[in-house]
């Protein structure tokens, strides 16, 4: 067991988001057993240079995970087709209110920049 105060890089401490990779497909929201993920998006038309028609893309307005409710099962991380969700080892986000455990895009993205190696736990 580690005693130096360092947690393993692959620890399942928190779930981080890469908002630019998210297509608002809602798979994580629907598969979450705890119903702890909420997502809001709207469609925008983007015209690429040289394209005949504009294409429709989803713009992510809001993405929250309620870590008070989350059971850290990782189904959302496993099912995301675009790897927009990833495990990070951060653990120091206790809150003075239950509502304070609901984290939005800003916090979820800041964890993505964190020190973890983002790899899955393997038998070693």
């Amino acid at each position: 067991m580690k005693t130096d105060g360092q947690v393993p890089g692959q620890a399942h401490g928190v779930i981080a988001l890469t908002a630019s990779a998210c297509t608002s497909c809602m798979i994580c929201v629907r598969e979450c057993p705890s119903w702890c993920i909420e997502l809001e998006s709207h469609d925008v038309e983007v015209t690429d240079p040289g394209a005949r028609r504009p294409r429709t893309v989803s713009f992510l307005d809001a993405f929250t995970i309620d870590f008070g409710l989350c059971m850290y099962c990782g189904i959302c991380v496993d099912l995301c087709p675009f790897d927009a969700l990833a495990w990070r080892p951060d653990f120091d986000y206790a809150s003075r209110s239950a509502a304070g455990l609901v984290q939005g895009i800003g916090e979820l993205e800041s964890w993505q920049q964190g020190p973890g190696d983002g790899t899955a736990i393997s038998d070693s």
Binding site: M26, V29, C32, W35, E38, L39
Partner: peptide, 15 residues
């Protein structure tokens, strides 16, 4: 009693 966050806006689906 709790609204399902996965409810699609354009069609009916239940968890």
């Amino acid at each position: 009693l709790k609204p399902w966050p996965g409810q699609p806006s354009h069609r009916k689906q239940q968890p």
